[in-house]
Design a protein around this nucleic acid. Sequence first.
DNA 1: TTTCAAGTTGAAAATTTCCTCCACTTGTTG
DNA 2: CAACAAGTGGAGGAAATTTTCAACTTGAAA
Lengths: 207, 207
Amino acid sequence: MTAPLRRDAERNRQLLLRTAYDLMAVDGLDVTYEEIARAAGTGLGTVYRRFPQRQDLLDALFAAHIDAVVGFAEEAARRDDALAGLVWFLERQLELEAGSRGLGELLRGRRQSSTLVQAAGERMTPIIAGLVARAVRAGQLPDGVTPGDFAAAHVMVGSVMDASRTVAPDLWRRALAIALAGLRHADLPGVAPDETVIDHLYHDQKK
Amino acid sequence: MTAPLRRDAERNRQLLLRTAYDLMAVDGLDVTYEEIARAAGTGLGTVYRRFPQRQDLLDALFAAHIDAVVGFAEEAARRDDALAGLVWFLERQLELEAGSRGLGELLRGRRQSSTLVQAAGERMTPIIAGLVARAVRAGQLPDGVTPGDFAAAHVMVGSVMDASRTVAPDLWRRALAIALAGLRHADLPGVAPDETVIDHLYHDQKK
DNA sequence: TTTCAAGTTGAAAATTTCCTCCACTTGTTG
DNA sequence: CAACAAGTGGAGGAAATTTTCAACTTGAAA
C-alpha cells in the first residue's frame, strides 16, 4: 500500500521516535516539535514531514504501550480471583505510566484521546466491568462499587504520580494503597459515575 | 499610604473582580486578560493598570477564600475528635474548591503558589500535623499515616473534581469517601511524603 | 553514471497570548 | 469652571509556537 521509506528517511524516523519518546517521558506530550528536531539533530521540516499531526507522532510512539495495557486487562480477566485481577491490572498500568509522563498524559487527562486510546478503552470497558461485577458478587468489594469507581481510583493515583514524579517517583504506590483500601472499605455516597462521566474523568481535555 | 482610587476607577475595579471571578470559576486561573476585559466591557489596558501582575488579581480575588480555609483548619483543631476534625476540614476546603475551579487550581496544583497561599500553608501545616498525630495516637488512624498522606488525599480528590466538574459536580464526594476510607484502612507502603514532597504535591507548577 | 522522486532544511509567514505605550477622556479639587 | 492628575482604550510590539514552502541534497532504480 504505502511505499516503504527511503533508508535514510527511515533512519531519521527512528531517531525522531527515540528522541521524542525520551523527551516526552520527562516533559510530557507537549514538547515542542522544534525541541524534538534540535535534540535529534534534524531540521524542523523533517519532523513535520514525518508526523504532520502530533497525533501521528503519539500513535507511533505509544501504540505498543496501549496494546500492552489492553493485554493486561485481558490477562487480569483470566484470573479466578477477580479483585486480585483488578488490583494487578491497575498496578501494571500505573507502572507503565510511571515510566513515562507522556504515557500517563495520554492514558488519563490532558489532550483529547486518539483513536487508539478510544479503541483500547472500548475493548477494556467490558472486561473491567466484568471483573468488578465478579468481585462484588464474590463479596470482595462492597455493593455499589462500579467500574467508574475504578476509573476514579486510577485518575486519583495518577494525579499523585504526576505531582510527585520528580521528587518521589514511588509515591504513587502509596496513593494506590489508599485508593484500593478505600474501594474495599468505603460506603460510597451519591451516584456512581456512568460512561459519560468516566469519559470525562479520562479525557478531560482542558488545558 | 496608597491614595484611594477615583470613584470610576474603583467601580471598574469591582466590576473587573466580579467578572474575573465568574470567568475563573468556570474556566480556571488562566483566563486571558483580554477575555476579562471584553466580558467586563473595559479596555485591556484597564485590566493591566489595575492588576499589573496576574498574582495581584488572584490575591484580590481569593484572599478571603484562603483565609476561610485557614479558619476551617483552626476550627477543626478545636474539636475533641481529631479524625472528625480532619474529615470536616478536608470536606469544607473541597466544598470551596467545588465552587470555583480557579480556587481549586490556586489551592492545589497549577501555577506556583502566591505569598498568600504559602503563608496559609505555613499556618495550617502544624495544625494539621497536630490533628493527624492526635488521630493516630487515639487509634482513629493506623500507625504510619502522616500529614503528607492527607495532602495526597486532598490532591487525589481534587483531580476527580477537576475532571468531572462539568458533568458530575458532586462526584468528588465519592472520591473523598474512597480516600478517607483508604486512609483509615490502608497499610501504607513506602516512605511517607515529607515536606518537600508535599510541596510538590500542591505546587507542581508544570504546565 | 545518470536521473529524479523522495527527503531535508531553515527561513519566514501565520497564530496566539502577553504586555507596553500614548493620545485621549474624565473625576475631582480649589 | 478651570486645570490637571488619574484613568481609559486599543493599536501594536515582543515572544513563543505552529505550519508552510521553495531551494537544495541524496538514495536508489535503470
